[in-house]
């Protein structure tokens, strides 16, 4: 499903050159749940953004669901990302001045679906994430847990094959973390491929995790 082959990624500014990733190769099968472990700055987020097609590797290949996304031109990579990937950010990155419903609808707008199909999908994910009762509330008025549920709903609304979560439980208490893990388990049961970057130990011993990859200074150490 997801293949990284000899990937290097470096960021160049006027002042310096940062090697974020060095010679990373990994393989994720469809339906697997993979954890990316490592301290901050180890390169976890970089790998996730490469797989989502948000950035391109300096050298090496990234292949997702048979498509070489490292070589895809912009409109096609955006289209691919929209269809196949749901991203849950560490800081959720919701648009605060939009309502819950409108935030969730955002990935659907470029698809230009009929109004019925669009509404159906939005209602489905809102129910799944138990946030229907706050549909018209502005996101800036929501609590942390509610915002996270909106972020999850938004990631699911396009019915993606892959869910990518970057430090999803960093801002949550124990109860909400557990709820999140439950949701991930449900998704795995449905056959969704999961990639979770985290240094939360709650995840390390979960039975449904298939692979654990540890990173340090941009290099895979396990």
């Amino acid at each position: 499903m997801i293949v990284l082959k000899n990937v290097y990624k470096c960021y160049e500014t006027e002042a310096q050159r940062i090697d974020a990733l060095r010679d990373i190769s990994l393989h994720v099968k469809a339906g697997e749940c993979v954890l990316l472990k490592g301290a901050s700055g180890s390169g976890k987020s970089t790998i996730l953004s490469l797989i989502a097609g948000l950035s391109k590797p300096t050298t090496g290949d990234v292949v997702v669901d048979g498509k070489r996304i490292s070589k895809l031109m912009e409109p096609f990579s955006a289209h691919f990302r929209r269809e196949n990937i749901g991203f849950i950010f560490q800081r959720y990155h919701l648009i605060p001045t939009l309502s819950v419903r409108d935030n969730i609808a955002l990935p659907l707008i470029p698809e230009n679906l009929t109004a019925q199909v669009m509404e159906k999908r939005i209602q489905e994910v809102m129910q799944l994430c138990a946030i229907s009762h706050k549909a018209s509330a502005l996101c800036r008025h929501l609590s942390g847990g509610e915002q996270q549920r909106v972020a999850i709903a938004r990631a699911l609304v396009n019915e993606p094959k892959i869910i990518i979560a970057d430090e999803p439980t960093a801002n949550l208490d124990a109860v909400l973390s557990e709820q999140f893990i439950e949701t991930m388990h449900d998704l795995k049961k449905r056959g969704v491929t999961l990639l979770i970057a985290t240094h939360d130990s709650q995840f390390f011993n979960l039975p449904f995790v298939d692979q654990q990859i540890e990173l340090k200074n941009g290099v895979m150490i396990s």
Binding site: E12, K56, P57, T58, T59, S70, K71, M73, E74
Partner: peptide
């Protein structure tokens, strides 16, 4: 097309 340099990424955007 096959380059992954900053210049190439910039060119892709400029073609827009």
């Amino acid at each position: 097309r096959d380059a992954t340099s900053l210049l190439q990424y910039r060119l892709e955007k400029e073609s827009y």
